[in-house]
Simulated scan of single mutants.
Amino acid sequence: MLFIYLAMIDDDTQRSKFEYIYHTYYGMMYRVAYELTKDQRLAEDAVHETMVNIIEDIDTIRMDNPKELKSYLYVVTKSKTIDFIRRWEKRKTSLYPADEVPEINNFDSPDEIALTKITLQKALQALNELPEKYRITLVMKIKGYKLKDIACLTNTSEANVKNRIHRARKYIFSKLK
Rank of each mutant, 00 (worst) to 15 (best):
D59A: 10
E103D: 05
A98H: 08
L124I: 13
N160Q: 08
R167S: 03
K80P: 00
T81K: 10
K38R: 13
F107I: 08
T119N: 12
K117P: 01
V76T: 11
T119H: 09
T77E: 10
D39W: 05
K80S: 14
M63W: 08
D64N: 13
E44F: 09
K90L: 12
I55D: 09
I55Y: 07
Y171L: 00
T77C: 14
S157K: 08
K143D: 15
I21R: 14
G27M: 02
I9G: 10
K92T: 03
V101T: 07
Q125G: 04
E158F: 00
T137W: 03
K17Y: 11
S94Y: 04
H166P: 00
T154K: 08
I9M: 07
M28D: 15
D12P: 08
Y74S: 07
K70P: 00
V75A: 15
V47A: 03
M28P: 00
L6M: 15
K67M: 10
T116M: 11
S94N: 11
H23G: 04
I85F: 07
L42Q: 12
K67N: 10
G27A: 07
E35V: 04
M63D: 06
K80W: 05
E132L: 05
N155T: 09
S79W: 05
I150S: 01
N53Q: 06
A123M: 14
D64Q: 12
D149L: 08
N65T: 09
I172G: 01
T60K: 14
A46F: 01
Y25I: 04
F84E: 05
P66C: 13
K78C: 02
I21M: 14
E89A: 04
K146Y: 13
N53R: 14
I82A: 11
M29N: 07
I113H: 02
T154A: 02
K141H: 14
A33W: 01
